[in-house]
Design a protein around this nucleic acid. Structure first.
Length: 228
DNA sequence: GACCAGGCACATC
DNA sequence: GATGTGCATGGT
């Protein structure tokens, strides 16, 4: 068995185990593509429960749509998304994001079942307020593209369990690691990321509760040294 | 009261 | 390219 196949087996073993412990996570918790995009911006460095409050404000005001958001002032948006924190900066980011989707008509590709432009990730990254994680969250959860989302939990998980050399644990390396060692299945990527977040919230905080982590019962480590 | 949360842009070195 | 900083509410 090649080293690559071994890595793939371990990643799938971890996935199966997490799924058996936590079950399906039901991501993304949004009704529509537009709501997912809006939530992806609002959840930056912010607890999801606060995002829910902001989304419910937007919905109550009839503003839970990208077109509507382009028509509001940043001040108006900021008032609605107040509970999500960083409301001034996020108002600007949300408006820039909404303007991108409205002017590019990307949602029409979905509506008419067309193939998305293959440089969509680069286009998203060029939008003010959309970085790697937000772009990839949108691609995976809103547009069902097989992109593996990396976040703080994923990075922490990789470090603590020694999945990567510490020299190559930047965002793109971690993304490439998962994408190249897993079957390119949207539903797998969807559930895997959500399960890592679930695991991280429970056992892998910055002040970790690693002793109780269910993964301790298994030995998945690819590299002998897991970093704290 | 401190710490943390499903980041990002920008300044500075 | 690496590292530091501002952004801000609400839950634990």
């Amino acid at each position: 068995m090649s080293a690559s196949q071994k890595r793939q087996n371990i990643l799938l073993e971890i996935y199966d185990y997490l799924f058996s412990v936590f079950g399906p996570q039901g991501w993304w918790p949004g009704e529509t593509i537009e709501e997912i995009i809006i939530g992806a911006v609002l959840t930056q460095n912010t607890n999801w429960s606060n995002v829910e409050k902001a989304i419910s404000n937007l919905r109550a005001a009839g503003c839970l749509s990208l077109k509507k958001i382009t028509q509001l002032s940043e001040t108006q948006i900021a008032k609605l998304i107040l509970p999500a924190g960083y409301f001034n900066i996020k108002a600007r980011r949300l408006k820039a994001t909404a303007q991108f989707f409205v002017t590019s008509k990307i949602l029409d590709y979905v509506r008419y079942n067309l193939q998305l432009p293959n440089n969509l990730r680069d286009k998203l990254l060029a939008v003010y307020g959309i970085g790697r994680e937000t772009a990839d969250s949108i691609l995976l959860y809103a547009f069902n593209q097989p992109v593996f989302v990396v976040d703080a939990y994923t990075r922490r998980f990789c470090r603590r369990h020694g999945l990567l050399d510490s020299a190559t644990d930047d965002y793109e390396s971690i993304r490439a690691f998962f994408e190249s060692h897993l079957p390119k299945h949207v539903q797998l990527f969807n559930e895997y990321h959500a399960l890592l977040v679930r695991l991280g919230k429970t056992y892998c905080r910055p002040r970790p509760l690693c002793a109780q982590c269910p993964l301790n019962k298994k030995k998945f480590f690819l590299h002998p040294k897991a970093v704290e």
